[in-house]
């Protein structure tokens, strides 16, 4: 008897997850015009970054920040904006190097 309850519960959860997955596919399709409109906004306003973290230049525009920005006015000063902890420099073949891939230049 217990196994029937368990199998029924697992099937219910799996169906629920399947519903979430199908909902995702439909929602992405339904909101496609929204994404296109955002893309158009980026094209027309020539935007380069998400307006997520507005507390500092390099968190508002991580792709445009100058190379010393994360260190503010001194290369040895400690990063003090929490959002800076979310952004790690990309791994570049054995060494860490800056936002984007700008150190090559």
């Amino acid at each position: 008897m217990r196994h029937r309850v368990f199998i029924g519960f697992i099937i219910a959860e799996a169906v629920c997850l399947l519903f979430f997955y199908l909902f995702s596919l439909l929602e992405i399709e339904r909101r496609r015009p929204e994404v296109d409109a955002r893309r158009e906004l980026v094209r027309v306003l020539m935007l380069t970054d998400l307006a997520v973290w507005t507390e500092a230049r390099y968190t508002r525009h991580p792709s445009q920040a100058d190379l010393f920005s994360p260190f503010q006015d001194s290369p040895s000063s400690i990063e003090h904006f929490p959002a800076g902890s979310l952004i790690a420099p990309p791994w570049r073949g054995g060494r860490r190097g800056g936002y984007g891939h700008h150190f090559e230049r």
């Binding site: 307006a51 997520v52 973290w53 507005t54 507390e55 968190t59 904006f81 929490p82 959002a83 979310l86």
Partner: peptide, 11 residues
């Protein structure tokens, strides 16, 4: 709270 950080205008 972790995502927002010190951002006062978080969408």
């Amino acid at each position: 709270p972790a995502l927002k950080g010190w951002s006062t205008l978080f969408p």
